[in-house]
Amino acid sequence: MSESAPERDRSLISRVSELGASAQASIPGLYAWGVTVASCAWARGVPWQTKVLAMMGPLVLLASVLIDKERPNVARQLSVWGLVVTSLIVWALVPTAAGPSRFDTTRGVLGMLGWAVFAFASAAPAFQRTEGEESRVVERGRLEPRQRGSRKDLPYLSVGIALTVALQCIGWGIEPRERALFVRLYTIVAGMAVLGSFASVALVKHLPPARKKRRARLAGWLLAFFVVAGLALGFELAP
């Protein structure tokens, strides 16, 4: 059944998807250019010709945005190859400015992230819904939960969380490092088990009664617990 989609608030995502692929990639491309290319081209001693060449990068991005609607394939090729080639030429012309002695770690990492986002946006832009997809979507309000929690669960969960946090305080500053790492891992796993146990105590009240009353084999588990606990106590108290 297709019905005309009601006028809806245009979210940021839907607005971005209306832009073409090149337009979406232009912002991260401009950022990557600014961090990694502009800082090299405007370094001291760089000739003006190199600066002009560096400016080709953002101009190419602007051109790709302008022609994106009419010729998206051309715009995409222009955006990707134009920015990359001009950037490479600038770096080749000013190798000292692009070297590790001038590039600190933070800027390098930020530049890498910018180029990665540019590549991702170029390769996988957000797409608008087609007319066929639009007819299958039924816009409704928020989904209501099938079940809601209860305030009476709060004390159980609070105790579970407190014990889990207390477990994380065990075993800091011990040597050697391998044991310290092992103890950290153990406390995380133990904390998860404790929290799960208290959560199940809290949640069991919300479950329907079991249809078949199964005789839980408590006796065996209880016996095992008392035996092991007795051994542990014996070890503890032994001189």
Binding site: Y186, A190, A193, V194, S197, S200, V201, V204, A210, R214, A216, R217, L218, W221, L222, A224, F225, V228, A229, A232
Partner: peptide
């Protein structure tokens, strides 16, 4: 640790 794990197991059995 074994005693603790068994205690949690007993707890879950009581809850069931």
């Amino acid at each position: 640790i074994c005693a603790g794990a068994l205690a949690l197991r007993v707890s879950s059995r009581f809850v069931e």
